[in-house]
């Protein structure tokens, strides 16, 4: 059998479309235009010359200029590219530098959510043989400046949501809309709902999940 693009179930398409529309709307700390610029920065990261040069160097180095055709501040592009290209080597010192250079922790959390969500959408689209989705026009409006107080220190670089049965589910809790955005994108990729169903058995799903974590050098 010859295939071009694989089938995509309607619920997954709907969830990913909804994520893209949500990204185009104003967030808590970034405008819709900014959030779409984060997606574009994530898409240009694979061909960034600085990232390629850094690949063999200390990942904490922030010197240099990333390929960037957006209006995002350079430190935001640094964060997007590092998260997209080299997340397994991110360290506390790098994070502290990013914050010291002017990115608010709340804005960073939202940037992480948008970047990681776009990674899911774009990886899946290309993986099944589709083009990456065309980005919508940004919706008007201003960021809400939302910040949750229902957080606590839990040994991470940032406070986590108090509620949640695992740290990953609490990770973006400083900005609840960011947490909602990300898990909206991720939800179809794992057993996040009672009616989650895959054409793979549970052991097959877990094998793929664990292998991707290993490839990305993620201990979690």
């Amino acid at each position: 059998m010859t295939v071009t693009a694989l089938p995509v179930d309607a619920a997954t398409s709907a969830a990913h479309d909804a994520t893209l529309r949500a990204i185009a709307a104003p967030g808590a700390w970034w405008s819709g235009a900014d959030r779409l610029a984060i997606v574009r920065a994530a898409r240009t990261a694979p061909t960034c010359v600085l990232c390629a040069e850094r690949d063999a160097l200390a990942p904490a180095a922030i010197d240099g200029e990333h390929d960037n055709d957006s209006e995002l501040p350079p430190i935001a592009v640094e964060a997007v590219h590092a998260i997209r290209n080299d997340s397994g080597r991110l360290a506390r010192r790098w994070f502290d530098d990013v914050i010291d250079m002017g990115l608010l922790p709340e804005a960073y959390v939202e940037l992480v959510a948008v970047t990681a969500s776009s990674v899911i959408l774009d990886t899946f689209a290309q993986g099944v043989g589709q083009d990456m989705a065309e980005l919508p026009e940004p919706a008007n409006g201003t960021p809400t400046l939302e910040r949750s107080d229902d957080v606590e220190e839990a040994g991470a670089w940032l406070p986590l949501a108090r509620q949640g049965r695992a740290n990953i589910l609490r990770s973006l809790g400083l900005v609840p809309s960011a947490l909602k955005l990300f898990f909206g994108a991720f939800g179809r990729s794992y057993y996040m709902a009672r009616d989650s169903h895959f054409a793979l058995d549970r052991a097959q799903v877990e094998l793929v999940a664990a292998r991707v974590s290993a490839v990305n050098e993620c201990f979690y």
Partner: peptide, 14 residues
């Protein structure tokens, strides 16, 4: 694809 995203969240939040 999902775990390509969620590992980045885990790593980026430390």
């Amino acid at each position: 694809a999902g775990f390509n995203g969620i590992t980045r969240v885990a790593d980026a939040i430390g």
